[in-house]
């Protein structure tokens, strides 16, 4: 036992173990969120949701996953072979890296880096490239339209996202997740959401847009574009996009809880429980939004961003910088 623990002190072994743990978490989380999302959708619409497979439909996501794995992989005629198959991998792969620097407890992070925040923002930016390649490589008009929307949307919403994150970084003076969390451990009122409510609001709205969740799910708007960028994907090609979407929900919720909601800090229970609780509370809110709001139109989407979120986040950032200088 002690030998195994000693092995863990080797940074490479530790990193590998962390990656395996994260991938397991992602897979399990995918199964759980599929079930929860369908149940939430059902309950909001006053119906039971999945009910037939297993008790209360608990095995439904397993059946869905088996179906996806068993399906034939089809590529449309005229599609770009390399780009078409690279896109789902490129969409899914960065997720593991995005979850590495996030602390789930006082000493529980896959990778303790100084620039953790930057790492997450940089790697989650890869997702839009994947969506773009998927749309372009599919040789399909729906996919191409979805990709065009995805790119415009992500480019627009990354700006308010970064600006709102910056104001938190100004306050805590660090881009290290562990330090940002540590600055919020002095009780509930030390959480950044109380000193930066506007930044939290902007971050959450932009996060919804970045993860292509309703009401900003234009890239895959099923009523207009069939399925948007993943129209042509079948089986696990689609499965990876699907898994990636749910994993990015975890990533943005985890980042939001670290930046604004005190991360792992909380009374009575140990760190990981608080962290998971906060993450899933945010995800439930995202699902609640999805089954409440209609999809925005494309001009509305960009107007919200350029006319409201970016100016507001700039003002918030300048105000924060001014206040910090004043306090010092």
């Amino acid at each position: 036992m002690t030998q195994i623990l000693q092995l863990l002190t080797n940074p490479l072994v530790y990193l590998l173990v962390a990656l395996v743990a994260i991938l397991t978490f992602i897979a399990l989380n995918g199964l759980i969120l599929v079930y929860v999302e369908r149940k939430v959708a059902g309950f909001v619409q006053r119906r039971p949701g999945p009910y037939e497979v297993g008790p209360h439909g608990l095995l439904q996501p397993v059946a869905d996953a088996l179906k996806l794995v068993g399906k034939q992989l089809v590529m449309p005629r005229g599609a770009d072979r390399i780009l078409y198959w690279a896109a789902p991998l490129l969409s899914f792969a960065p997720v593991a890296v995005c979850l590495l620097p996030i602390p789930f407890g006082p000493n529980l992070a896959g990778l303790d880096v100084n620039l953790g925040l930057l790492l997450v923002l940089a790697f989650s930016g890869l997702n839009v490239l994947a969506l773009c390649l998927a749309g372009w490589g599919s040789n399909s008009k729906y996919a191409l339209l979805g990709a065009a929307r995805a790119v415009a949307q992500s480019v627009a919403y990354e700006i308010p996202l970064l600006l709102s994150v910056l104001s938190v970084a100004f306050i805590s003076g660090s881009l290290n997740f562990a330090e940002i969390t540590a600055s919020q451990t002095r009780g509930l009122l030390s959480w950044n959401v109380f000193s930066q409510p506007l930044a939290f609001f902007i971050f959450f709205v932009s996060a919804l847009a970045e993860t292509n969740r309703a009401p900003f799910d234009l890239p895959e708007a099923e009523s207009e574009l069939t399925a948007g960028f993943h129209t042509e994907y079948s089986g696990m090609g689609f499965g990876l996009f699907f898994l990636a979407e749910y994993s990015y929900m975890i990533v943005v919720s985890a980042v939001a809880s670290v930046l604004f909601l005190g991360g792992w800090s909380g009374p009575f229970l140990s760190g990981p429980w608080w962290m998971l609780g906060k993450i899933y509370a945010l995800i439930l809110a995202m699902m609640w939004f999805r089954w409440t709001y209609p999809r925005v139109r494309f001009d509305q989407l960009l107007n919200i961003c350029w006319k409201w979120l970016i100016p507001l986040s700039l003002i918030n950032l300048l105000g924060t910088a001014f206040m910090i200088n004043l306090v010092r």
Partner: peptide
Amino acid sequence: TGKEFCRPWI
């Protein structure tokens, strides 16, 4: 939607 969520199935 929150209110509907808490009410029984129809």
